[in-house]
Amino acid sequence: MATIALIRHGSTSWNKEGRAQGSSNIPLDQDGINQARLLAGRLKSGQWNHIYSSGLERAKQTALLIADATGLNVHFDDRLKERSGGQIEGTTEAERIEKWGTGWRDVDLGIEAIEEVQKRGKDFLEEIYLRHQGENVLVVSHGALIQFNFIHLVADFPSTHFDNTSITILKKQDNRWTCELHNCTKHLERDNK
């Protein structure tokens, strides 16, 4: 059985502004760098064997800070990239309403289908599960990818929210995914700074 820790990247200026990031290559802001460093400090003492990451800058920066602390190499995989936002990338909710109206979600704006995000995420996780039996794997990705795959893989879970640099631990046993830790950000608590 493989243990997989899903990690959302650190914060960006666009997170704070409420802008859809999608596949835009936005870097971490200073808060995001600090969050990733605190996360790396937390993971340093763990028994981790591998790190996989989206190649988008915000996830890449987060993964490389973890790699520096753990001594592991980062393997980049395009299947971990964020859901493409099409024409909404870079916009806020207010800007979307102004441009396309309150029903903007019903307009074809080139946004990647949830089913496509779930398929590539599930394919990746199943491959990692089979490749790394008995190992502990860190996977650095993005909010929508983690959320849509979590909903798809873990049935009847009360929450699907994922904070920046949160850790969510999944295991698969008897052909069923379970969640052992959800959206944990204890490394960000004031006592740990």
Rank of each mutant, 00 (worst) to 15 (best):
Q47A: 12
E89S: 06
C184D: 15
R96G: 05
A113R: 11
N192A: 15
Q30V: 13
D108P: 01
S84C: 12
L28N: 01
A67L: 08
V107L: 05
W100T: 01
N49A: 12
T91A: 07
E135N: 06
D31V: 10
K186N: 14
K193T: 15
C184Q: 09
Q118P: 05
S11M: 14
S23V: 13
L130S: 12
E98Y: 00
G143E: 09
F76S: 03
L38V: 09
L80F: 05
K60T: 10
G71N: 11
A36L: 09
G18L: 11
E95F: 02
L39E: 04
R42A: 14
F157G: 03
K122T: 15
R190N: 13
L28Y: 00
H152T: 10
K186D: 15
I97T: 10
I151E: 14
E115I: 12
R105N: 11
N25R: 06
E127I: 01
G71T: 10
F162H: 03
S141G: 08
Q47V: 09
T168C: 04
L125Y: 03
I7Q: 04
V139E: 05
A5E: 11
V154C: 09
A94S: 13
G143L: 08
R42D: 13
D156P: 00
H161F: 08
K99L: 14
V107W: 00
F150S: 03
L6M: 09
I111N: 00
L188I: 13
N136K: 06
R120T: 11
D106F: 04
L39K: 06
Q133L: 14
N164H: 07
F150M: 11
A113G: 00
A2F: 04
A40V: 09
R190K: 14
E127W: 07
S159Q: 10
K119Y: 11
P158T: 08
I4S: 04
Y52I: 09
L64R: 09
R58F: 07
L125D: 01
L130W: 07
K172E: 15
G22H: 03
S13Q: 14
L39W: 05
L80K: 06
L109E: 12
P27M: 07
E180N: 09
I146P: 01
Q133R: 13
H182L: 07
Q87E: 15
L56A: 11
T12K: 04
R79C: 06
H132Q: 13
G101M: 12
L28T: 02
F150D: 01
L170M: 07
H161A: 13
A36G: 03
G55C: 09
H75T: 15
R96Y: 02
R19Y: 01
N34W: 06
R19H: 02
G46P: 00
D29W: 04
H50C: 07
T70Q: 08
A67M: 06
D191V: 14
V154W: 06
T92G: 08
G18K: 08
E116R: 04
I111A: 06
H50A: 10
N73Y: 03
